[in-house]
Amino acid sequence: MKKFRFYIDFEKEEKWLNQMLIQGWELCKKSYGYKFYKIAPNNTIIKIDYRTFKNNRDFEDYLALFRDSGWEHISGSKYSGTQYFKRVNENGDTDIFSDTPSKAARYKRLSNMWLTTAISYFPIFIALILTKAINITAFLNPRELYYTPGLWERTGVYFWKAFLFETPFAVMRGGVWLFLPVLMVLYLAFAIKAEKHYRKTNVE
């Protein structure tokens, strides 16, 4: 079974995944969606960390540390960031974090990732404006998205026929030009939200 959801709050994501466990569905892979397989009810617990690694050795050492503590790695790679673990030792700890600061730090790493991604798109956006691939004045004057000669001088049915015909194309042009700035704003919002979770978790 596959489900599609998006989370920034790790606690909410863990709660949902563990509710799926209670219903007999265990996470086996997370990429663009959550892939589950049917299991018999058990006492396992799923927990989430957020880390990326520069090389395979550091990643393997990281996984070995969790294995030694009774946690099995379910999904995630050295580049994916989000790492999913399930408890395989029923007598082990019920959490993968030893203290509040380390638990909160995963949100800080997540916030930094979203912020870095947003900033990385900025020079691309500026370059597209400078090369006139994006018409920045069209954001202030949407009429520039319409290319039909003399459109705004037409009246009556001639205007509406031309206007309605070109509007879908104008919307597509504007949508393409808005894609990068919207993406940057969205990533900044994700970074701010993750930062809020970091501060909240760090004081609990």
Rank of each mutant, 00 (worst) to 15 (best):
M1D: 08
F4N: 04
R5V: 03
R5W: 04
F6C: 00
F10E: 06
F10K: 10
K12A: 10
K12C: 07
K12H: 08
E13H: 11
L17C: 04
Q19P: 00
M20A: 04
M20P: 01
M20D: 00
W25A: 02
E26M: 12
L27D: 05
C28Y: 02
K29C: 10
K29I: 03
Y32G: 14
Y32E: 09
Y34M: 01
K35D: 13
K35S: 12
I39N: 04
A40D: 13
P41M: 01
P41R: 11
K47V: 06
I48Y: 07
D49G: 06
R51E: 14
R51S: 14
N56V: 13
R57Q: 15
R57N: 15
D58E: 15
D58P: 03
F59G: 07
F59Y: 15
D61F: 13
D61V: 14
A64F: 10
L65S: 14
L65E: 14
F66V: 08
G70K: 11
W71N: 10
W71G: 12
H73R: 04
I74P: 15
S75I: 11
S75M: 11
Y79G: 01
Y84L: 06
Y84C: 02
R87M: 09
R87P: 11
R87S: 12
V88H: 03
V88N: 02
N89K: 14
N89W: 09
E90S: 15
N91G: 14
G92K: 02
G92M: 09
T94Q: 08
I96N: 04
F97M: 09
D99Q: 02
T100D: 06
T100L: 05
P101F: 08
K103Q: 08
K103A: 13
A104L: 01
R109L: 14
N112D: 12
L115C: 07
L115A: 11
T117P: 07
A118Y: 01
I119P: 00
I119T: 09
S120F: 08
F122H: 06
P123N: 08
I124V: 15
I124L: 13
I126F: 12
I129L: 09
T131C: 07
T131D: 03
T131E: 01
K132N: 12
N135G: 00
I136K: 07
T137E: 15
A138G: 14
F139G: 00
F139I: 02
L140D: 02
N141P: 00
P142W: 14
P142M: 01
P142V: 03
L145P: 00
L145M: 08
L145E: 10
Y146Q: 02
Y146I: 05
Y147F: 01
L151P: 03
G156P: 00
V157Y: 07
V157P: 01
F159P: 12
K161V: 12
A162K: 00
F165Q: 05
F165C: 00
E166P: 06
F169G: 00
V171D: 04
R173T: 06
G175P: 11
V176T: 13
V176P: 09
V176F: 12
W177E: 12
F179N: 13
L180A: 05
P181A: 06
V182Q: 04
L183V: 03
M184P: 02
M184A: 02
M184V: 09
A189E: 06
A189P: 06
I192W: 09
A194L: 04
H197L: 15
Y198M: 11
Y198G: 02
T201E: 15
T201S: 03
E204M: 11
E204C: 10
